[in-house]
Simulated assay, not measured.
Amino acid sequence: MSRIAYVNGAYVRQNHASVSIEDRGYQFADAVYEVWAVFDGRAADLTAHLDRLERSLRELHIAQPMGRASLVVILEEVIRRNRIREGMIYLQVSRGVAPRDHFFPATPVKPSVVITAKPVDRDAARRKAAKGIKAISQPDIRWGRCDIKTVGLLPNVLAKQTAREAGADDVILVDSNGYVTEGGSANVYLVSGDKTIKTAPLTANILPGVTRISLISLLKSQGYTVIEEAFTLKDAYAASELFLSAASTFVMPIVDLDGHVIGDGMPGDVATTLREAYIQEATHSAGVWSASGNNNL
């Protein structure tokens, strides 16, 4: 079946979809995006992703493209038209189409909206998580506003490609002070032996992950102490567990970092239990959203 995309008001076959070559998302990476996991045909963490999208647009002074209720209808329609039961849905909003100029368009233009969806093999992802992954560390060379979810991901791409060429599955990024910031496309957590979880605090170089919010709540409800505090590679090597979180991977254990075996070299109880708990909660809450707050999005 041909995949269907939503592009600026029309549902089209994805292989026929297009945007203008003067779209500022293409010319300048002047765009933001969001990704939702889809469980049983419904988007998970719907409201939290919409909230973050609104913030990203506001930080870049990009106009909100439509009302929130209208956007939810379109997201659901893209899922339906692609017959996605278990998968992902991707939304991108750019500043719009205008003659190439580093300045914002003098006359405001309509933002461009693109939405696509695809199925995901959850059994394959489950097997990967049960085995755990290898990662390497790389310098964090991203721009200083990683708290905004922009499409400017070239540093992430280069870091992930370096990991692949080194025979690893993912990458851990380290800032100029030696502190772990994030994974290539995920937040990072370490577990110490005293039921303590550490993850980097939300500063300008950390993306406020929506999955991160849910995981921290779940961990606290299970009696863990969650500390939002910077940690080093040395701390990561010595952790009893190390894992990533993202909407695309949920919870992914790291069992080897830079050749250092993490814990006993197998996914630990915290990550394994947390992954299943998150999937259950996300499945239960998928499709639920709130119209409260700013309804211009």
Rank of each mutant, 00 (worst) to 15 (best):
I115R: 11
L190N: 04
L297Y: 09
D235C: 13
R126Y: 07
P119N: 02
E54P: 11
V78F: 09
S248T: 15
Y90M: 04
A5D: 03
L233P: 13
S20A: 06
E77F: 03
W289A: 13
N187P: 02
A163Q: 08
P105N: 03
D30R: 09
N156P: 11
D194Q: 08
G268R: 01
K195E: 13
C146D: 03
E182A: 02
I89S: 04
I84L: 04
V261Y: 07
F243P: 10
I216E: 13
G178S: 05
N177G: 12
E77C: 05
K234W: 04
H49P: 05
L158F: 13
A117I: 13
K134E: 01
G9V: 05
L46Q: 06
R52N: 02
T181H: 03
R126Q: 08
I62K: 00
Y6E: 00
R55P: 07
A69P: 00
V270D: 05
I21A: 14
M1R: 15
K220C: 12
T211N: 11
D269C: 03
I136V: 14
V97C: 06
S137R: 00
G9F: 08
T203Q: 10
T116D: 00
I172E: 06
L53C: 12
Y26N: 10
Y11F: 15
G41P: 05
G9N: 06
A44S: 14
G167S: 04
R275H: 09
N187I: 02
L75M: 07
I89A: 06
E86P: 08
I254T: 00
R127K: 02
S2A: 15
F104W: 02
L71E: 04
R127N: 11
D175R: 00
N296R: 14
R52M: 00
A239Y: 10
K220N: 12
D123V: 13
E276H: 14
S56K: 02
L219D: 01
R122F: 13
G268S: 08
P111C: 01
M252V: 05
G193M: 03
S112F: 11
G144R: 07
Q280I: 13
I136W: 02
R212K: 04
S214G: 05
A271E: 08
A129F: 01
V188D: 02
P253Q: 06
S240Y: 04
L53D: 09
R95S: 03
P139G: 03
G287W: 01
I197K: 05
F28V: 05
R85W: 04
E229Y: 04
K149N: 10
K134W: 08
A63S: 15
S185T: 14
A5V: 05
K131E: 08
A282T: 06
N187V: 05
S285L: 04
A124L: 14
A135G: 01
P99D: 00
Y11N: 06
A163K: 14
T107S: 09
F103L: 14
V97D: 11
A98M: 06
